[in-house]
Write a protein that binds this DNA or RNA. Structure first.
Length: 569
RNA sequence: GUGCUCAUAGCUCAGUAGGAUAGAGCAAUCGCCUCCUAAGCGAUAGACAGGGGUUCGAAUCCCUUUGGGCACACCA
């Protein structure tokens, strides 16, 4: 499609002696379309050119040569030059592109680039609670969007299947495993064991020592410990898969921490050779104070077992070699901020190419808290994802019974809507913000929510169904789409690809979520103001096509976020 | 204490690499289905934590105060 902004900066370049790339960064989009589609503020140039912004603007306006077909009008207001895109041209551009491109917004900017995304990564034997929702859906959305932009994406579920927590579980199982029947709801039972052993540990340092010892045994291949560990794993993964099936989460690899157990020796060896590995209080550490990190990174514990940092470093080595990544992003809560700063710093000592160490990125998100306080598996204070999804699905079912009782396939639609509500809720705001979990907000399907997007989509489908076919592009009279409601929609559709680029630029799916809300709102307004199916073929064809275009972008966008779209609801 | 981070309307949030009058949604009150799904649309009302600084221009950048959150060596 035509890059209008670029057209403008190239035209300005010819008038003043500044290269168009710089000018491109000056051009902005006014908040209000009344002030044009693009604006060039002349204030920056005032000092340089020793003229007032108004005069500069006037001079540029006078001398600039623009293709009327692209920019139909320019106006000087204050120190701004406002540019108005030719309404018919942009409408035609969008309609041509929508009708010719099944994958609207798709691109190849990521061609030949490998992106590893480490996400979801729940801990074995712990309940899958709403604290894990963000990493799962943010990672999933980023996965889809990178892929849509042509990147080669490798999604890894870095399961927490190793470490002292397993020592604790093993020790707990030894002590009171016989009280539990693990054939039903195994994770709940394991979580209970975990809770109890933690209580013991905080009372008695000796118990904690035993746990650490159990993990050491596991790490050194002890048969009993390994057998138990495998059992816990199998039970847990089965439970996780149920949730992933509901959420539609997929991974290219399930490689938990244990996968790197035999790869940590090399990390230790490399670090030893750098001379940066020091003894401290019996442990082996890398001091990072010269990099401005006060806390040293522990590589090898004093009881001669590894720690998660060691395994994460081994994973970096492995991923660099196996996937040759350009970027490796970790989607976890900001709790782990220090940890990632540490290992990214230590990774520089592993002798890897800078490409890899520069490509490491921690994509952090805010904490989810319950109204009753911080969630804690140890203390048994959490909401399970499964329970939440069941609640929202139930609510969706209730609303369907109320509003559309004759709907076909109600169960399935309720599922799509209920789950969509949860996914959208987790992607709707900047990821860094903390969230106090609010079940009432989650169950409210009004306003800026997943169901609103789905509902708007369903309306577009309904219109299309009524007219039975999508109008041919040659039957569309562009003039019909020059009114403000249509133009609003067209301009939004026009910038879809740009939105996707912004998302990966910041690893921020909420940019897409917000955009889809804007699009749905613009369509709802259009829908409310206009009768779409009218006798006048001219008007009908254009409006129906616009409806089709909105539906298409809503569906592509929502699917990228991991939200399914019902045809009716 | 040190580091990171957040602070915008009663509540939940937008605010695009500082730009033209700070936008939504929820909740509340009131309107709109003889018409393509009212899970919708419209109206009313309300805000940049305090103080400095940089700049032609600051919600946005810097400093500082206050208040939340998180982390700070053998958990992940």
């Amino acid at each position: 499609m035509i890059d209008f902004k670029n057209e403008i900066s190239k035209a300005i370049e010819k008038v003043i002696n500044i290269d168009s790339k710089t000018l491109n960064t000056y051009i902005e989009v006014p908040k209000d379309f009344e002030n044009g589609d693009y604006a060039f503020p002349c204030f920056k140039l005032a000092k340089e050119l020793k003229k007032s912004p108004q005069i500069i603007a006037g001079e540029i306006q006078e001398k600039i040569e623009l293709d009327k077909k692209n920019i139909e009008k320019i106006e000087v207001v204050g120190g701004y030059i406002n540019f108005y895109i030719n309404k018919e041209t942009i409408a035609k551009e969008v309609i041509d592109e929508i009708s010719s491109n099944e994958n609207y917004g798709h691109s190849n900017v990521g061609k030949n680039k490998n992106i590893v995304i480490d996400y979801s990564s729940p801990n074995i034997a712990k309940p899958f609670h709403i604290g894990h929702l963000k990493t799962t859906v943010i990672g999933g959305a980023l996965y889809n969007i990178y892929k849509y932009l042509g990147y080669n994406v490798i999604g890894v579920n870095h399961l927490g299947d190793y470490g002292t927590q397993f020592g604790k579980l093993i020790e707990g199982y030894k002590l009171f495993g016989n009280e539990y029947d693990l054939t039903e709801n195994p994770i709940d039972k394991l979580a209970d064991i975990y809770k109890r052993i933690n209580e013991l540990c905080s009372e008695d340092e000796k118990v904690l020592e035993n746990c650490r010892e159990d993990f050491k045994l596991l790490e050194h291949g002890d048969e009993y410990c390994t057998k138990l560990w495998k059992k816990f794993n199998d039970l847990s993964i089965g439970e996780f898969q149920k949730i992933y099936d509901l959420l539609g989460s997929k991974f290219d690899f399930w490689l938990g921490e244990s996968f790197y157990a035999d790869k940590t020796d090399e990390v230790i060896k490399i670090l030893e050779n750098t001379g940066k590995l020091q003894e401290s209080e019996g442990a082996k550490i890398v001091d990072l104070s010269s990099s401005g990190i006060d806390t040293p990174c522990i590589i090898y514990k004093s009881n001669e077992s590894t720690i998660y940092a060691t395994r994460d470093l081994a994973a970096i080595l492995y991923r660099a070699r196996t996937y040759d990544f350009d970027k490796c992003i970790y989607v976890t809560s900001y709790e782990q901020n220090l940890h990632f700063r540490q290992i990214f710093e230590v990774a520089k000592l592993l002798g890897l190419d800078e490409k890899y160490t520069n490509g490491l990125e921690h994509v952090a998100y805010g904490m989810v808290r319950l109204p009753s306080g911080k969630m804690s598996t140890r203390q048994g204070n959490f909401v399970k994802i499964e329970d939440l999804l069941n609640d929202t699905i139930k609510e969706a079912k209730k609303i369907i019974e109320d509003k559309n009782p004759n709907l076909e396939d109600k169960e399935n639609v309720a599922k799509i809507v209920g789950i969509g509500a949860v996914i959208f809720n987790n992607l709707a705001t900047s990821r860094i913000k903390d969230e106090i979990f609010d079940i009432d907000a989650m169950l409210n399907f009004q306003g800026e929510t997943g169901p609103y997007l789905q509902y708007t989509y369903v309306r577009t489908k309904s219109v299309i169904e009524k007219v039975s076919s999508i109008p041919k592009i040659e039957d569309i009279n562009i003039e019909v789409l020059t009114d403000k409601y249509s133009q609003n929609i067209i301009k939004l559709i026009y910038k879809f690809e740009d939105i996707l680029n912004q998302v990966i630029d910041k690893n921020e799916p909420s940019i897409l979520s917000r955009y889809l809300i804007d699009l749905a709102k613009a369509y709802s307004l259009f829908y409310n103001e206009n009768k779409i199916i009218v006798d006048d073929e001219n008007i009908k064809n254009a409006r129906v096509f616009l409806t089709y275009a909105v539906g298409k972008v809503l569906k592509i966008g929502c699917n990228l976020l991991g939200i399914n779209m019902p045809n009716k609801m």
